[in-house]
């Protein structure tokens, strides 16, 4: 069966909620019925058929041809299969994903991977602020899975992260890993102001010394680390990085001692 393909006909006239277009929610729905699903978020209420040309029939393999910053909630809550967006995404791409693979071949807006619990989200371009972060009122951000940004990420990447792996390969904005509860944030290419601000536990792994740390972090030396070897090898084996990030004995800052203080910022010497 050929994958279900949604080709964007023109720039959408309103913001779109694409959360109904996941492998789970489209299972067993005829193509002509798919075209009648409402995705417009204003009173205009656009339907799938107004925005996309639909082809193919396999809902476990969904492709969006053409992107726009108005495409919100791509693959929200997806549990399996694959979704590929060729182009840019709007806000909350991969929000609350639990499984499967979402690939965005372009840039993603704010809150990409927000509250993810599993699966793999890969963004080939840049991501906006609050990568993997909780929405207002939620207690924890990313809670599992793998989130890879091949470009840059905005501020508050991995905010309140609890579990899983986030990797940003071309640098992040300010306050990366703020309020982390646990989990692993990898940033190559530099971070902005105060990475790890108010982190409780968790690991922030950098390819260079952080420029501006919060003063409530302390130097913890640079002992030999098997963990560094394991994570370096994993990042390369998983195709996330091409060369080791940390080396065998990375330097460590411990913190944030303004809160629990059991987090770490590791970086190669």
């Amino acid at each position: 069966m050929k994958g279900l393909t949604f080709t964007l006909v023109a720039e959408p006239p309103e913001r779109l909620d694409l959360s109904p277009l996941t492998p789970e929610r489209l299972a067993g729905i005829e193509t002509r019925d798919v075209e009648t699903i409402q995705i417009g978020m204003s009173k205009q209420g656009s339907k799938v058929g107004d925005i996309f040309r639909v082809a193919g029939s396999d809902p476990t393999n969904i492709v969006f041809e053409g992107g726009s910053t108005r495409l919100d909630l791509v693959a929200q809550g997806m549990r399996g299969g694959s979704v590929r967006l060729v182009g840019n995404a709007g806000a909350q791409a991969g929000r609350a994903m639990r499984g499967g693979k979402l690939t965005i071949e372009g840039n993603a807006g704010p809150y990409a991977g927000s509250g993810m619990r599993g699966g793999r989200l890969e963004i080939t371009g840049n991501a906006g602020d609050h990568l993997g972060a909780p929405l207002v009122g939620e207690l924890a951000g990313m809670n599992g899975g793998v989130l890879i940004v091949r470009g840059k990420a905005g501020a508050f990447a991995a905010d309140r992260m609890r579990r899983g792996l986030i990797a940003v390969l071309k640098g992040s904005g300010d306050l990366a890993g703020s309020r982390m509860i646990a989990g692993t944030l990898v940033v190559a290419g530099g971070t902005g102001e105060m990475p790890g601000y108010l982190m409780r536990r968790g690991s922030i792994l950098l390819d260079r010394a952080p420029a501006r740390m919060s003063p409530s972090f302390v130097e913890c030396g640079a002992p030999e680390s098997v963990f560094a070897a394991i994570i370096d090898r994993h990042l390369i084996a998983d195709g996330i990085l091409k060369r080791p990030l940390l080396g065998s004995a990375p330097r460590k800052y411990g913190g944030d001692n303004a809160v629990l203080g059991m987090g770490e910022v590791l970086f190669s010497r």
Partner: peptide, 14 residues
């Protein structure tokens, strides 16, 4: 002071 780390499908303690 032990740290739990899940890397891929493996679980380690530090």
């Amino acid at each position: 002071w032990q740290i739990s780390k899940k890397i891929g499908d493996r679980h380690f303690w530090r």
